[in-house]
């Protein structure tokens, strides 16, 4: 369960988040929708611990543990995962090495045994097949020369390997065609269950046809201004954010 209370945060002295209250109970998938500049990405970065964002008030706990005091890697071990809107390319870092290092770091952080190269390969191949990823993507540099869709699939592959209890998907649908969108959504849906929650951040309703959320929240100007069921997404699609703003 992710619980955010009264969270305010600023970057370079400019307040972006102005008091976020949000609860994502274990086993649920929630969506956050909002126009550009509403603070969606800032929320994902603050929760995952990016430098340069200062939390000025409020709390955020994952399964009762305060995550805001943790280093990014500790948050990962605690079960948090961020799928990036723009995954970073790492020339010279082999994807297989990266994935195995990450997996073993997280397993170590959780007090689990590390996997050897053979065990890792077996697991990675299995997960990659489910995401229709060719095996040569293991041999390439992390995200180097990957298409937009391949990068997003690589994010989902990392999520599938690291088995977070709480995943934040930041604009995972951006730059995806319908086929890739479907593969990525299937990957997320396959994770759904009583021990997995997700916060799906998106600008458009389209993604929510594939990953159907339990709740939808509308973020505007640094605050959650409206919450509702999946139908709220359709409403926004039909009427635009302006209607919510007018009502709020």
């Amino acid at each position: 369960m992710l619980r955010i209370e009264g969270l305010t945060a600023e970057i370079d002295g400019k307040e972006i988040l102005k008091g976020i209250d949000l609860e994502v109970p274990t086993g649920e998938v929630h969506a956050i929708m909002g126009p550009n500049g509403s603070g969606k990405s800032t929320l994902s970065y603050v929760l995952s611990g990016r430098e340069g964002y200062e939390v000025t008030a409020g709390t955020a706990t994952l399964n009762g543990v305060d995550i805001l005091a943790m280093e990014p890697e500790e948050r990962a071990a605690a079960g948090l995962f961020l799928a990036f809107q723009y995954p970073v390319e790492l020339p010279g870092v082999g994807n297989a090495t990266f994935l195995r290092t990450a997996l073993n770091a997280v397993r170590k952080g959780r007090g689990e045994s590390e996997l050897d190269a053979m065990q890792f390969l077996k697991l990675a191949r299995q997960r990659m097949t489910a995401l229709s990823m060719p095996e040569d993507m293991l041999k390439r540099g992390v995200n180097v020369g990957f298409s937009g869709g391949e990068k997003k699939r690589n994010e989902i592959l990392q999520m599938a390997l690291l088995q977070p209890s709480m995943a934040i998907l930041d604009e995972t649908d951006s730059g995806l065609d319908i086929d890739a969108l479907k593969i990525v959504s299937d990957g997320v849906n396959a994770m759904r269950g009583p021990n997995f929650s997700a916060l799906v951040i998106t600008h458009y309703q389209r993604l929510l046809d594939y990953i159907v959320p339990d709740r939808v929240h509308v973020l505007m100007a640094g605050r959650i201004v409206k919450s509702g069921g999946p139908e709220l997404a359709k409403e926004l699609e039909a009427q635009g954010y302006a209607s919510v703003q007018a009502a709020a």
Binding site: S48, G49, R50, E51, E71, P72, E73, R75, A76, A77, F81, L82, F84, P87, V88, L90, V93, T97, F98, T101, A102, A105, V106, G109, Q158, L162
Partner: peptide
């Protein structure tokens, strides 16, 4: 790049080494 690696659970010193 450093932040990306750390969000994947890789400790800062190891991420720098990579």
């Amino acid at each position: 790049s450093l932040f990306y690696l750390r969000t994947r659970g890789i400790p800062e010193s190891q991420a720098k080494a990579m």
